[in-house]
Amino acid sequence: MSEQQTDLAAWPDDVLETAASWKNDGREVAIATVVHTWGSSPRPVGSQLIVDGAGAMVGSVSGGCIEGAVVKEAMEVIAGAPARVLDFGVSNDQAWEVGLACGGKVQVYVERLD
C-alpha cells in the first residue's frame, strides 16, 4: 500500500514515552497519576504527570493548581520515600493541602519509576 508514514513518536505530550526516555537517559523519575476524582475536577482519572529529580515536569494532574505540591511529594519519593496517595480538595486540612479552585476533590498516586 502506498502510504507515507509519519513519526507518531513525535507526539509532544506522550507522558509515559517521556518517562521511559528520561529513565534511559539516567534521570530519576516519579510518576503521579490521578486515581480518583469527586465533583468537578479539571483532569480525568488516569491523567499523569512525571517529575525528575530536579523538579522538571511533563503532563498534568490538574489545571495547574496542585502540580507544585505534587512535584514536591514526587521529589521526596524519588529521594527514597515510599509511594503514596495524596488527597487534594476543599475539605482537606493537612499540611500539604492546596485548594482546588474548582471546588472538586482529587486523589493522586505518586510512585517512583524503578
Binding site: L16, A20, K23, I31, Y109, L113, D114
Partner: peptide, 23 residues
C-alpha cells in the same frame, strides 16, 4: 512502577492492543 512494566505498557500501546494496568 517498574521499568519493565512501563516498557510492557509502551509495547502494548505501540502494537495497538487494549490492556489495563492494575497497581
Amino acid at each position: 512502577m517498574k521499568s519493565e512494566t512501563l516498557e510492557a505498557v509502551l509495547k502494548v500501546r505501540a502494537e495497538k492492543r487494549a490492556a489495563v494496568l492494575l497497581t
